[in-house]
Amino acid sequence: MDKLIIGGKELKNRLFIGSGKFADESLIGDIVAQTGVEVVTVALRRVNLNGGKENILNYIPKDCVLLPNTSGARNAEEAVRIARLARAAGCGNWVKIEVISDNKYLLPDNNETIKATRILAEEGFVVLPYMHPDLYAAKELERAGAAAIMPLGAPIGTNRGLKTKEIVRILIEECELPVIVDAGIGKPSEAAEAMELGAAAVLVNTAIATAGNPAMMANAFSQAVQAGRQAFLAQPGETTEFARASSPLTGFLRS
C-alpha cells in the first residue's frame, strides 16, 4: 500500500486543498466527502467584531488534518507567533510556514522561512514550509527539522502550472523529505505532471475554489493526482531517445 507519512500521520490521499477564495465555503465538506482529501489548509485572522461570517471550521470535516498557514507573516518572528496562536486554537500541531514580504509576486522568503522552521520544529510542530524551489534552502530546511518541503510551481494564485519543473525535479531527487508542490498548479494535468515527477503530494486552492464548478474540478484534480502517482510508481517504459546508432559505440568489444 502506497502511503504518505508526514509528522507520523499516514495519509492515503495526496491531494491537499486550500480553503480560501471559495464563493461558497459549504462546498468544502462536499469536496472532502467526494475526493477523500485529508489535509485542508486554513488561515488565522482577526475576528470581525461587528459580526462576521460563520467560522470556516464549521465547513471542514472533523477528521481532516488542519494545516494552518502563517499567511500575513513578513518575517520569521511573525510566522512563529502566528503558528503558536494556531496551535493554541486547539487544531493540532501542523503548520504551513509562509513568509512573504513581496506584495507584487507573493514569493516566499526562504531565509526567514528557514529560521521559522528551525524554531517551530524545535517546539514540536509538524512544519511544512512553503518555499521558493532552491536546493540549498531545501537542504537547510531538512536540517532545520521540516516534515516536508513545499516548493512553488508558479507564483501563488496564478494558475500558471509547473513553471519550476526543472528545479522541483532536482529537489525530489536530492531531498529525503517529501516534496509537496504548492501554488501555481492551475489544471489537473499539471498536478499529474508534478506527481509523475515523484512529488509526494500537491496542494491546490485557487484552481479549485475559483473554478466554475469547484466540486467537479476537485474531483478532476483528485483523479489526476492518483493517475500521476500511479504513473510514477509504475515507472514509465523506455522512451527511445536516440535513433539506433548505425555504428554501435560498443561494437569494438565484440570484434
Partner: peptide
C-alpha cells in the same frame, strides 16, 4: 487583546 479565528486560506 487580539482575538483571532480561522478563515479560509491556501
Amino acid at each position: 487583546l487580539e482575538i483571532l479565528s480561522f478563515v479560509g486560506g491556501g
